[in-house]
Design a protein around this nucleic acid. Structure first.
Length: 151
DNA sequence: GCCAACGTTGGC
DNA sequence: GCCAACGTTGGC
């Protein structure tokens, strides 16, 4: 089993959206970065655990945990002309983008802020805190997972 | 809203 | 395949 961190803008999809529908599989779509897509396609498996990270908002940080309930499949939004994620160059035969389904596990009692994560000497290797990193799907090692949650 | 850093596009 | 121009990300 692998660990991941997914970024999201809470106005778009927040941990509360999961908490309000705890048994519902939610489509994680709209990833439009090749490196992030490759993780989704090649390494994100059913059963993997995912930290939900709130970005571009007032309270930035890790807000909760979800679990992958369905592994890689073609992101439906790339075919939807009405979607902001529509991609005219994607075809059913040759989809470009990948989605997974995730389901609520828990909401953390308190947000683990980016400041705290940055302040941890154990987490300097985490892509999130590395300079210029813009990955919206990134791997988390088992020890990083433990260290983040212990904050 | 600013802006640094990065990714993507497209002409050559 | 280079690289300038442009677009996006995301913290501040």
């Amino acid at each position: 089993m692998n660990y991941w961190l997914f970024k999201t803008e809470p106005t778009e999809c927040s941990i509360d959206d999961f908490a309000n529908a705890p048994t519902k599989a939610i489509v994680w779509e709209g990833v439009r970065n090749y490196q992030a897509r490759n993780f989704l396609r090649d390494q994100v498996n059913q059963g993997d655990q995912v930290l939900i990270y709130h970005s571009s908002c007032k309270h930035i940080g890790v807000a909760g945990i979800v679990e992958v309930v369905k592994a890689a499949y073609a992101d439906p939004s790339q075919f939807d002309a009405a979607s902001r994620y529509f991609d005219a160059k994607a075809t059913l035969e040759q989809p470009r983008w990948i989605a997974v389904d995730v389901c609520f596990v828990n909401k953390l009692p308190a947000l683990i802020s980016l400041d705290k994560i940055k302040g941890s000497t154990k987490l300097t290797e985490l892509p999130l805190v590395q300079k210029g990193n813009r990955l919206s799907v990134m791997p988390v090692t088992p020890s990083q997972w433990k260290d983040i949650l212990s904050l």
